[in-house]
């Protein structure tokens, strides 16, 4: 029976099917080789769809070269805080 949960800022963890052993091995290797963000180093560039003043646009971080940018990640729309 599906269990009711109270909505909060934290999304309940997703229980995923356990990946096959060989998949785990490769994903761990990928994780280890991924460089961490460092202050003073370039921000990873990206292009993403965005909503902006009634329109849908594609935006790239690199468009803002020459300006200060605050990039704010958040858990999701309608998440209270």
């Amino acid at each position: 029976m599906a269990e009711e949960f109270k909505p909060g800022c934290q999304r309940p963890p997703i229980v995923k099917p356990a990946p096959a052993a060989d998949v785990i091995e490769t994903s761990v290797m990928k994780e280890a080789s991924k460089p961490m963000i460092k202050v003073g180093k370039p921000a990873p560039d990206f292009t993403a769809p965005a909503f902006f003043k009634g329109k849908f646009v594609n935006v790239s971080l690199s468009e803002f070269k020459g300006k200060w940018v605050v990039l704010c990640f958040y858990p999701g729309d309608f998440t209270f805080v």
Partner: peptide, 11 residues
């Protein structure tokens, strides 16, 4: 996560 990125594109 909140990142402040300068005009050169550096964090």
């Amino acid at each position: 996560g909140r990142f402040i990125i300068d005009p050169d594109g550096n964090v």
